[in-house]
């Protein structure tokens, strides 16, 4: 199947100013090159042209599926997807759309495209499920008196797959979009004082009542003298950057990216990892002084974050 080429699919309409104007109106595109003939007359085109991102839209079949204009091929360039589906891979998701343009389109041009099955992957498993990546290349031409003119290309890749979990039926009140929230910590009897401190705006560090030493993260037993008699002390909240990492990938909502995370050496002597705020990632330095501040996320989780200070 790979390497197979499919015949022409024509555009229903010539490139025309009405469809261009309506596209610009909906998309919020206000470049005068596409709608203002007086402006366009001052450009190398001499008249309005079509927005490049509209390329594929000219050749879509419209309301009725597979209802292509006269002269179009009877073959189905998308049959590979039906064939995969018949093997038990019902779902599809678009992965890549790569448009390239030879030139801008003038009003009145009549387009068609041909399709090449460029690649079909081995069976792959992703977070979505198991299936195949199908890569098609559509080459767009403009009919001309002499030889037709290639005007652009679209590389389109989809993942045709068997979902990892059966799709859940949409709940009745599904109109609420699922906004990502910060993950909540697992809180135990040993760690509760720390999180309650965050809610109270205090940075509480576990302290042994027997030997008075500090430790973090909180534990059920003193790591120094093995006493079970533990309390806490409120740290001043100042310290220095002992180490740091800047997370670039993967980008996971709801975190900001790049996401700088520090290992903070508190002035009291213990270290804790925490998010950094107000930092320029190129200017982070080991040893830099930082100070705690508390931020509440999603109305339910207060975290200690550290901000560089000058002292």
């Amino acid at each position: 199947m790979v390497g197979r080429e499919y015949g022409r699919i024509y555009a229903w309409d010539e490139v025309n100013p009405a469809m261009v104007r309506q596209w610009c109106e909906v998309m919020g595109v206000d470049n005068p090159l596409y709608t203002d003939a007086a402006y366009a007359a001052t450009t190398e085109f001499g008249d309005i042209v079509a927005p490049p991102a509209m390329l594929q839209a000219w050749c879509l079949e419209g309301l009725h599926m597979n209802n292509y204009p006269p002269g179009s091929t009877d073959e189905n360039p998308y049959e590979v997807l039906s064939l995969i589906e018949a093997q038990g891979y019902p779902a599809v998701v678009a992965v890549n759309s790569e448009l390239s343009f030879e030139r801008y389109l003038e009003m009145g041009e009549k387009l068609y495209y041909t399709t090449l099955i460029k690649d079909l992957s081995d069976e792959k498993t992703t977070g979505l499920g198991t299936g195949f990546f199908v890569t098609q290349v559509m080459t767009f031409y403009s009919e001309q008196a002499g030889a037709d003119d290639k005007v652009g290309e679209l590389l389109f890749r989809v993942f045709k797959f068997k979902p990892a979990q059966a799709a859940k039926p949409a709940p009745a009140a599904a109109s609420e979009r699922p906004a990502a929230k910060r993950p909540l910590p697992g809180i135990s009897d040993d760690t509760r004082f720390f999180w309650e401190g965050c809610d109270a705006g205090e940075l509480r560090i576990q302290q042994c009542k027997a030997c008075n030493k500090l430790q973090h993260p909180p534990a059920p037993v003193c790591q120094h003298c093995h006493s079970f008699d533990l309390g806490y002390r409120i740290a001043k909240g100042s310290g220095e950057l002992y180490s740091f990492v800047v997370m670039h990938y993967p980008e996971v909502a709801p975190f900001d990216h790049p996401n700088p995370i520090g290992l903070i050496q508190l002035d009291e002597g213990v270290r804790l990892p925490a998010g950094l705020v107000g930092v320029d990632r190129n200017e982070l330095k080991i040893g830099q002084r930082v100070r705690v501040e508390f931020q509440t996320f999603d109305d339910q989780l207060t975290l200690p974050l550290f901000r560089p200070v000058s002292d």
Binding site: W23, N31, P51, S97, F101
Partner: peptide, 26 residues
């Protein structure tokens, strides 16, 4: 999505920018 990408870049480039390609991942 492709149209909005064009709009985002065009609002910066101005009307004399000419697109050569527009490659996106969804």
């Amino acid at each position: 999505t492709s149209a909005l990408v064009e709009r985002f870049v065009e609002q910066w480039s101005g009307p004399q920018g000419r697109f050569r390609d527009l490659r996106i991942r969804l």
